[in-house]
Simulated assay, not measured.
Amino acid sequence: MINKTITKLLEENQEKTIEIRRKLHSEPELSWEEYNTSQFVYEFLTDLGIECRKTEPTGVIGTLTGGKEGRTVALRADMDALSVDELNADLPYKSGTAGKMHACGHDAHTSMLLAAAKALAEVKEDIPGTVRFIFQPAEEVATGAKAMVEQGAMEGVDDVFGIHIWSQMPTHKVACNPGPSFASADIFKVHFKGQGGHGAMPQDCIDAAIIASSFVMNIQSIVSRTIDPQKAAVVTVGKMVVGTRFNIIAENAEIEGTVRCFDAGVRDHIEKQLQVYAEQTASIYGGSATVEYIRGTQPVINGEESAELVQQVAKEAFGEDALYDEKPTMGGEDFSFFLDEAPGSFALVGSGNPEKDTEWAHHHGKFNVDEDALATGAELYAQYAWAYLNK
């Protein structure tokens, strides 16, 4: 199942992989602004002899046609950074742009997939089929994958595989269980309308602050009292803007939050219940409510056959103890839009190492990657493609 030539090629290019990751880390670009990153990727793939095209505005698709006929497997990496100030002051390759940082490991994903592309290109004639490399923008705003699908990224693809660096797992460990991996991630916005007035005369007013506060407290019972406790779900209010001045009873209140779950029926139920709770809570106090529910990413559900192949590849490439049983996360991932088009799976590669201070949470200003994990990710990408096409 494992191609030893690929392993050797990746080992020989390990320093180059680290060099590329550091370059990308020092030059972060936000979602839909990845112009320099995508140009670098395009030129790198083109130099390898891999057929490339860009998608609007900042995606890159590479196609490596093997020397033998066969199926098509897609490998995906995301490229965008976050609006985060880097706090790793002593890092020689720290972000060169204030307020922008690769705080989620997408620089690592990009460098790992480029390394895999280079190794696969060198064994091109032995590949029975086609490898498609998808370098995706705007994962952090959950719109990049969908845009690339609409521009043909998944046309003709039989299977798709992606990786995420994971600081909560030890370096070199690999997790890819069949079934739920990442939750759906939706946004809800609620506007409550009351009747403002003097803070000393509440009897003449309808207090939007009271309506909004009651709503925030009450909606937690949607999960705790209306959903099967064996089905995971989270309803979180992250933003609340109420009133204009300390002695004026608020006429308006704006609330924003997120809903996370794995089950389509639970998702529909929560959306309906938010509407009911908003309207009924407002009605109790004599106000009104309008609700906007925005569906974001789908849940990432790993296909059984694909996830088992990842596990087989990881065991053969890195040893039996490489597998890690990481539980599903309520975080969101727009890799789900690729899984809507073809079967596949999404793996986590550990990069947490206390000796290198790389156990910080994703999206934190001190987030960093144990670069030893790059070799694991690059080989997993390449060997998965090889194993799938030779299956």
Rank of each mutant, 00 (worst) to 15 (best):
G265A: 13
A117H: 11
F262C: 08
N390V: 05
L10Y: 02
E341D: 03
F337R: 13
E355H: 09
K356R: 15
A183C: 15
Q230M: 02
P229S: 06
F192C: 13
A342L: 11
A232T: 14
V369S: 03
I134W: 04
E125D: 09
D107C: 09
L48V: 07
V369Q: 00
V190L: 06
C52K: 04
A289G: 07
K4C: 04
R71C: 13
G179V: 00
I187W: 00
L87P: 00
P128A: 11
A81T: 14
I18H: 02
M112A: 15
G129F: 09
F335N: 00
E29T: 08
K146G: 13
G179F: 07
Q14M: 04
A89Q: 12
T290H: 09
F337P: 06
E316A: 15
V369E: 03
A307E: 06
I6K: 08
H364Q: 15
L64D: 08
E125I: 10
F367Q: 11
A373S: 14
V223L: 08
G66W: 12
G67W: 05
A89M: 11
R245D: 14
G319M: 10
Y384H: 12
G365W: 02
V174A: 08
G59C: 13
F215D: 11
S283A: 12
A115I: 11
K327V: 05
N368V: 04
L120K: 03
G197C: 07
Q383Y: 08
A147M: 15
P328D: 13
C52Y: 01
K118R: 15
A289M: 04
R295W: 07
Y381E: 08
H25L: 12
V123S: 02
D340Y: 10
A185T: 09
K315Y: 08
E86V: 06
P28C: 03
A89D: 12
A282H: 07
L114S: 03
D186Y: 03
I187Y: 04
I255P: 03
G66F: 11
A253N: 08
A347F: 06
S288Y: 14
K366V: 04
A209N: 01
M101C: 05
G105R: 05
E86P: 06
S95W: 02
A232M: 14
L45E: 02
D186I: 04
P354M: 13
I284F: 02
W166C: 04
F215Q: 03
E326D: 01
S351W: 05
G303Y: 00
S83W: 15
G257W: 09
V157R: 12
A200E: 05
C261Y: 01
I211G: 01
G199R: 11
H102C: 13
D186L: 05
K8L: 06
A145K: 07
G332E: 05
I50S: 11
G59Y: 08
G344W: 14
G286P: 06
G59H: 12
R76Y: 13
E12K: 01
Q39G: 01
H106P: 13
S336Q: 09
S83P: 13
E122G: 00
E359N: 00
T244Q: 14
S95R: 03
L348C: 04
E379T: 14
P92G: 06
A98H: 09
P299Q: 12
G66L: 10
T329K: 13
E316T: 06
P354L: 07
K100E: 15
G59V: 02
T65Y: 14
I222W: 00
S167L: 01
D78G: 05
F161K: 10
T65D: 11
V123L: 07
